[in-house]
Structures are given as C-alpha cells and as structure tokens.
Computed example of a mutant assay.
Amino acid sequence: MVQNLGRHILGEYYGCDPEVLNDPERVERLMKEAAVVSGATIVQSVFHRFSPHGVSGVVVISESHLAIHTWPEYGYAAVDLFTCGDSVNPWTAHHYLAENLGAERTETREVPRGVLDVDGPLRHKPVAVAV
C-alpha cells in the first residue's frame, strides 16, 4: 500500500504587515505558536534579522520543521510547513500564520514526502533501523 511519511506545505503569503515581517522576535513567537496550535512538539528555534530588513528562521519540531523567510519591503513571506506522522496538522499552522502575519492572500501547495510502498501501518519512528 502506498503511504507517505510526511506532508510539506509550501506557502506564499502576500500583503502581510511589514512591521511584523521585520520583527524577528515577533516572527519567532508566531512560528512557535503556529507549531503549538498544530499539535507539534518544539525542539529548538533559530531566527535572524537581516540588514536592512527581512527575517529568516526555523522552528525544529519533533515531527520535522516550520521555516519562514520574509521580505517586509514587499509584504511577502515564504513559509514551509513540513510535518511527519498523523499527530500534527500543518494546515492549522498555515491558517494561524496567515491570520497573524496579516496576509491579504495566500497560495499553497501540499507535497507528500517520503512516498513509500509498504505493507501494514507506516511507522514514523521505527524501533530499530537496519544499517
């Protein structure tokens, strides 16, 4: 049976609030909140503000990652929401971010990741790995 290990949402966020997009602390807080509301477990995060403007960052979650790159001068953010397993809903994170970044419009594409032909249930965290 064909199954996939993860879901990867590629998000384009247009017409966002430039002040939010240029504030690394606020962007990091929103990304962490998006992870939590989606059901993810946060491992670590790293964010950086560029000069003269723009923020890039990633929230590593047990189930994969959430990443963002912002262009405040264009009111634009590119967001990747990659989750594995069935316990996290990346669409919940997407909707939370769209609202809180003030996006006027979004475009998304969901890409299945790790598409495998396996018998039985797909285990996201195997007990043992053959080397």
Score class of each variant (00 low, 15 high):
residue 53 H to T: 04
residue 7 R to T: 02
residue 16 C to G: 10
residue 21 L to K: 10
residue 48 H to K: 09
residue 99 E to T: 07
residue 47 F to M: 11
residue 81 L to H: 04
residue 4 N to P: 05
residue 30 L to P: 01
residue 106 T to H: 10
residue 103 A to T: 13
residue 126 P to H: 07
residue 64 S to G: 08
residue 18 P to M: 03
residue 104 E to F: 01
residue 19 E to H: 04
residue 101 L to R: 04
residue 9 I to H: 03
residue 124 H to V: 07
residue 103 A to K: 14
residue 104 E to D: 11
residue 64 S to C: 06
residue 110 E to D: 12
residue 113 R to N: 10
residue 116 L to Q: 12
residue 9 I to D: 06
residue 122 L to H: 01
residue 71 W to L: 05
residue 73 E to Q: 11
residue 39 G to D: 00
residue 50 F to R: 04
residue 78 A to Q: 04
residue 71 W to V: 05
residue 67 A to P: 01
residue 74 Y to H: 06
residue 80 D to T: 14
residue 24 P to L: 03
residue 123 R to Q: 14
residue 24 P to C: 03
residue 118 V to L: 02
residue 31 M to V: 13
residue 53 H to K: 07
residue 99 E to F: 13
residue 26 R to N: 13
residue 105 R to F: 15
residue 120 G to A: 13
residue 36 V to Y: 03
residue 107 E to C: 11
residue 100 N to Y: 04
residue 74 Y to E: 06
residue 97 L to R: 09
residue 17 D to V: 07
residue 92 T to C: 07
residue 57 G to S: 08
residue 65 H to E: 12
residue 28 E to G: 11
residue 87 S to E: 11
residue 4 N to F: 15
residue 96 Y to T: 02
residue 84 C to Q: 00
residue 64 S to M: 05
residue 54 G to H: 06
residue 18 P to E: 02
residue 122 L to W: 13
residue 115 V to N: 03
residue 71 W to T: 13
residue 118 V to W: 00
residue 9 I to S: 11
residue 102 G to S: 15
residue 59 V to D: 01
residue 124 H to R: 14
residue 56 S to Q: 05
residue 76 Y to E: 06
residue 131 V to A: 13
residue 44 Q to C: 11
residue 98 A to Y: 05
residue 56 S to E: 02
residue 87 S to T: 00
residue 35 A to F: 07
residue 70 T to K: 09
residue 111 V to D: 12
residue 109 R to F: 15
residue 121 P to Q: 12
residue 126 P to D: 03
residue 87 S to A: 08
residue 72 P to Q: 06
residue 80 D to Y: 01
residue 14 Y to R: 05
residue 44 Q to S: 13
residue 9 I to G: 08
residue 108 T to M: 09
residue 103 A to L: 15
residue 72 P to Y: 07
residue 32 K to A: 00
residue 127 V to I: 13
residue 12 E to I: 03
residue 67 A to F: 10
residue 58 V to A: 12
